[in-house]
Simulated scan of single mutants.
Amino acid sequence: MWKSLTLIGFLAAAVAVPAYAQNVTSATGGVLRALDKTSGQTADIEIRSGQAVSHGLLEIVMTDCRYPAGNPSGNAYAALEISERGKPGVVFSGWMIASAPALSAMEHPRYDVWVIRCTTS
């Protein structure tokens, strides 16, 4: 019973201030974390908005990274486009949210990528 009340409270708080109504600021870049599921190695990737970086077989482009206005260490939202070298199309295109990585996750058999935070300098 308590779990359902907690979930209801969480959902009510999430609905009370929709994401589109929050004031956000665009950052100069962000930090992503990548996991190679084959080797088990992780790497933090610093990327500037508009920049493309390579990680393993992936090509990652961050078009924007946003955070709550006045709180740079707050929840990050990053617009990413991820493709795999040598293969047509994209593996992922959209927004990833640091506090809810499973909400909009990249589906890839070898790699996982998720947002850690935005950077302001």
Rank of each mutant, 00 (worst) to 15 (best):
A43C: 06
S93V: 02
P68I: 06
G9Y: 07
S99G: 03
A13W: 15
G70A: 08
Y77L: 04
R33D: 03
R33T: 06
A13S: 11
L5D: 08
T6V: 12
I47P: 00
E84C: 07
L5H: 03
T28V: 10
Y67W: 14
S4N: 11
Q51I: 00
L58N: 03
V17S: 01
L7C: 08
H108D: 13
M1E: 10
A100W: 07
P88E: 05
H55A: 04
G30K: 14
A14T: 11
S39P: 06
I97K: 04
A69G: 03
I97A: 06
A69Y: 07
G89W: 05
L58C: 04
F92N: 09
P88Y: 08
A102T: 07
G40D: 13
Q41S: 11
S39T: 15
T25S: 13
L7G: 02
M96D: 03
E107L: 02
H108Q: 07
V15G: 01
V17K: 04
G50C: 03
L35M: 07
P101L: 04
S26M: 04
G74R: 02
V90S: 12
F10K: 14
M106S: 04
V115W: 05
A21E: 12
L11P: 14
R66I: 11
V31I: 12
A12I: 12
P88C: 03
L58T: 03
I116F: 14
